[in-house]
Design a protein around this nucleic acid. Sequence first.
DNA 1: ATAAAAAATGAAAACGTTTACACAGGAGTC
DNA 2: GACTCCTGTGTAAACGTTTTCATTTTTTAT
Lengths: 346, 346
Amino acid sequence: MNEKIATIEDVARHAGVSIATVSRALHKPDVVSETTREKVQTAIAATGYTANVMARNLRLNRSGMILLLVPDIGNPFFSAILSGIEKGASQAGYNVLIGDTQNDPEREATYAAYLRSNQADAMILLNGRLPAPLANAPANATPPVVIACERIPGCALPTVIIDNDEASFIATRHLTDFGHTRIAHVSGPSNNILTIDRVAGYRRALDAADIGFDPALVYRGDFSIDSGIAAGRALLGDAKTRPTAISCASDGMAIGVIVAAKEYGLRIPEDLSVVGFDDIPHAAAYDPPITTVRQPRRRLGEQAITLLLDRLGAKAPFTNTETGPAIIPTELIIRQSSGPCPKTRA
Amino acid sequence: MNEKIATIEDVARHAGVSIATVSRALHKPDVVSETTREKVQTAIAATGYTANVMARNLRLNRSGMILLLVPDIGNPFFSAILSGIEKGASQAGYNVLIGDTQNDPEREATYAAYLRSNQADAMILLNGRLPAPLANAPANATPPVVIACERIPGCALPTVIIDNDEASFIATRHLTDFGHTRIAHVSGPSNNILTIDRVAGYRRALDAADIGFDPALVYRGDFSIDSGIAAGRALLGDAKTRPTAISCASDGMAIGVIVAAKEYGLRIPEDLSVVGFDDIPHAAAYDPPITTVRQPRRRLGEQAITLLLDRLGAKAPFTNTETGPAIIPTELIIRQSSGPCPKTRA
DNA sequence: ATAAAAAATGAAAACGTTTACACAGGAGTC
DNA sequence: GACTCCTGTGTAAACGTTTTCATTTTTTAT
């Protein structure tokens, strides 16, 4: 039973027509006569023919692949985005190829070469950095690339992001509205554009409430729960200088901060208000449920693939010079981890 | 600058040799003379040549792709497994293609056809079900497929799993050891093999402690936090019949159960012990930290890709008839969500 | 019935590789 | 100097498609 796999030629022979006719029967049915079309159909069924995609793609000079560069596929944050991308891509007949770069520029470059070598028709970047081969390309060249998640300053490629500055502003303002004046911020890694934007929003909210900025109240984490715990211990250790509220650049870090706060016997939100960022599923189920900025990750992915497919379909250049980046709206979800500033400290 | 992309022919012309020599210079360097090899190298540099992978794969009749079928890529549970697979695959020069099946048999069949159409060299199944085209294949055919995560009864394909029965047994025994006698179980969906195995382990532990099985104490969830909350409300609503301990088939459901328990004012673990399954990162950071069965998901992925690459490399048949399924060991992680049975109810 | 137009089909080129085979030339052996 | 053997290279076939172009067959108009 382990015969050679059927090719278009087998079908042609079986149906008594030429291979050209078989191909046409499949892709331009209206141009071949009713009767031959049927003959071909039965021949296909009889032989169990499946077109060799490799050969087809070679001829058509495409790959049907969309390459997705992501810093760490093990990070659940990206899987929801991925889910949105995959859905749109597969509807359009594309497959999604994951490139896990581990933040390694070399791996990024390797994957970027896929575009040249015809292994991918287009690319989506979730890692906030242009791979070297692309960065060095002339400015007028527009590779089929879309940026998502983290904007790249000075890059005119189509981009879809949330307004991190504004979202962080709103989260922090939520705390100033509650009367807090001593507000800390737990940020992401310093080389990260998200960090820069969210710190900016945090500072803007302080300004708006006439609160001075204290660098000692910004702790640099890495989005993980563990770094949140470390941040909490660092910020809350000294009861004298302790803030009454903390805005965090991720829900994971918010959870970590709360873990640390409980170590010091602090009640949330009576003694300490905490807000997170992302609205991961666990934020709502935590004790207490965490006030956070909802980031529609799935929509982000959907929008990215839409941008990409639109341009690919229309053979339009990959720029966003007319429209600027697409902004996906965020939403402040108020739960029970934030509340009024304790009277004694206001 | 947007010239046609360089082909092997351009390189050959530039170096003044035949295309065969160029190809050989690249893939069998020892067979071409030092001087030509250098000429070819400079020609490649000059033209910026990158081999067209599509053409190469057509000729070699391979794709360099490993297809990964996963029920829902948006589910973080799978992303860690994926991470292990991707690592091993990319070291071996393979790419990982994600097929998000959404548990849709039709999509599964579509993806399974990738094997026939040369879009993938092999496949890893995380979804616990053989796609129809494979299931119907004759028993002696061994498609290049590896099963991970959920065993498929009666299927001789290479398989890597954890011992769900035993793991669930140990988790439940942990509770009987604490003196609990009224122990509930929150399971996964009923059509799921994981559910069957874990329920079996739960019952085995009850038997071992001479505790009768009460069907009313098994609640069917779907691994999600929400279904855990529903389970908790169903099981804990009546203070008379309430269990003193609950073993859950996922950490998410354990968290949900705890959320519900707190609604009823129950203290964990003083009034109710809860154990989870998986050891997701949030389990350790929850309040209280959750006792759970650690499932090494990344190792699971690594083992799956190893099994696959071994057979692919050795051109060995894809069976596990000699060795049986590979079992990845689990570990009971004892934290603070479980404790002795309250005196009043023992 | 015939010419013209339209519809359906086939032959063959092309996509960019790898590799079996043939061949040229040089080195060694007698 | 003729023979073999080796080394390095080129020619051309093959992988399985799609598509242009030419050709055959059918339909329509006169």
